[in-house]
Design a protein around this nucleic acid. Sequence first.
DNA 1: ATGAAAGCGCTAACAC
DNA 2: GTGTTAGCGCTTTCAT
Lengths: 335, 335
Amino acid sequence: MPSTIRDVARASGVHISTVSRTFSAPHMVNSETRSRVLATAESLGYRPNRAARALITGQTGNVGLIVADIANPFFPPLIKAAQSQARGRDYNIFVAETDEDPMAEEDLVHALAKQVDGVLLCSPRMSNDLIEKLSKEVPLVLINRSVPSLPCVLMDVGQGARQAVNHLIGLGHTRIAILGGPRGSWTSREIRKAAVVACRAADLDPIVIGPNQPTVDGGMAVAEHVARESACSVIAYNDLMAIGVIEGLNSLGIRVPEDVSVVGFDDSALARISRPRLTTVSNPTPAAGRMAVDMLLQLSDDRRAAGQVMLQTELVVRGSTGPAGSSSDTSTERR
Amino acid sequence: MPSTIRDVARASGVHISTVSRTFSAPHMVNSETRSRVLATAESLGYRPNRAARALITGQTGNVGLIVADIANPFFPPLIKAAQSQARGRDYNIFVAETDEDPMAEEDLVHALAKQVDGVLLCSPRMSNDLIEKLSKEVPLVLINRSVPSLPCVLMDVGQGARQAVNHLIGLGHTRIAILGGPRGSWTSREIRKAAVVACRAADLDPIVIGPNQPTVDGGMAVAEHVARESACSVIAYNDLMAIGVIEGLNSLGIRVPEDVSVVGFDDSALARISRPRLTTVSNPTPAAGRMAVDMLLQLSDDRRAAGQVMLQTELVVRGSTGPAGSSSDTSTERR
DNA sequence: ATGAAAGCGCTAACAC
DNA sequence: GTGTTAGCGCTTTCAT
């Protein structure tokens, strides 16, 4: 039922190649014929079939974006920014989700490969080797993951982790727990490394717990472990986990921030809603989404383009952290 | 660089149509040749180009899903369910977002039209006429919107609204405010209609406020209005707004649920996190997503299929509602 | 400036 | 069971 280039050609009395030019190279066609073609196209409701065009040009006008979990509030701002950036450049974004399943990542890349000009891989969990292999099939830009030789946009969570540790130390905390995220997460590793180094620099021995499920439930699940270690503060892989630990601690009768301080990561919308308000490291996710799109589109023009981009993060202090208290610090009892 | 059907044909010494059949009708090819073709295809990393196939078959294997705002926690569960349902049937889902802009809806449908076998329109804000026009260009299934003659899956929010009103009346509330959602929202209209009827049935005159932005900020913005009307309870269009009103009321020195009770809609993940826990009407969003996908795929097989589906909703009572108090009920002072 | 013809990767009759 | 041929909707030389 939708009309094709042939219908327009017939109805406006020109050859299909003229219609084609009218849309893909307007300046190459007489302005008179052009407006006539445009008019009949309009009246027939004709729109060029991008998929058919892609068969020849190799350009689909689409880009893929693969994320782990749409329900994780970390992603929506990134997705929104990427989508609007892409639309501004007349590209569509197709968002797909792996549901935290590393196996699904590869399938999704394959499924998208032929329908897009490139794929944005956000926080992938798969191996470097696999990523490199896939990058042979379709241009890839990584977000929150560093693979040598592939373009990527990174957020300097290490810096945020250092700020978080120093913030806690400044408040008098000594037993700091670090809650890791999912296995394979570059971000989780960077946070842990930086936090551990910062702790050691202050002669502290951090308690590392993980990997964990990066969700509220994941946070609740480790609350008991945190309590058992008699940590007086916690740095969680993300806001979801931070909220989960707080919940879990509360139900053990431990209050935040009076007894234990908690720092999250992401500064998601949740951080300003939950009680207490979350002290958290803010990530420039919208900027990351925009840059990633731009890097990907540049990649088509210029294969050499694009290296690594590192974006800054920053600790935002709110209500979930406070001076080291005494009530929960059973470490004193144990000595 | 990616290999085509011709490469495989050459490498395995058969004609391209045999390769084609190997993938689209395996039973029509000798099992011996089939495995040989499959093997060389594997070694060449060949994967059929779905877009090219679609040019002939008219079947892309993709479905589009258009939502208003990925950051609104109402959508992610629906998206996830739709995505997994689709993948189970070997379809990809392309998610696109309008950012609450009604103009973007039409553009997006057009952008997707040729690349998908159908589009799921979730909570569209555009006119019935436009929706019907678009349904001529690409199969459409509506979610949270009823247009005569188009398949849709609806959630019976009216029922939930009645439950909410009766819950509040049971707690002794008399001045009930109803916060509408965005202009053009079918859900908002249904909630308002049902809530108003339920109030009138109890000889109450509800305070209707709206339309409003369906976000936390939108909720905060109406808090003052709610206070000015000296409402003792509020039914908000969604959880986001409910949380916003609570925030706004708090900053006016009004406590929830002691002074004012608040009911939300959606039972999103937020409802179990925010303080107080939200009393809210739960929507079967995952079921809606699954059903919508199935209806859309059925539509391809059988044009007559699919009418309207109505899913049930249910009030979940938590901490944001309580007995009608006295402190904020300045209506007594005014009498 | 426009038309003719070839072909992108693939499927679908139709022969053999 | 497999090869032949035509063609999906479109772009792109190459002529004219």
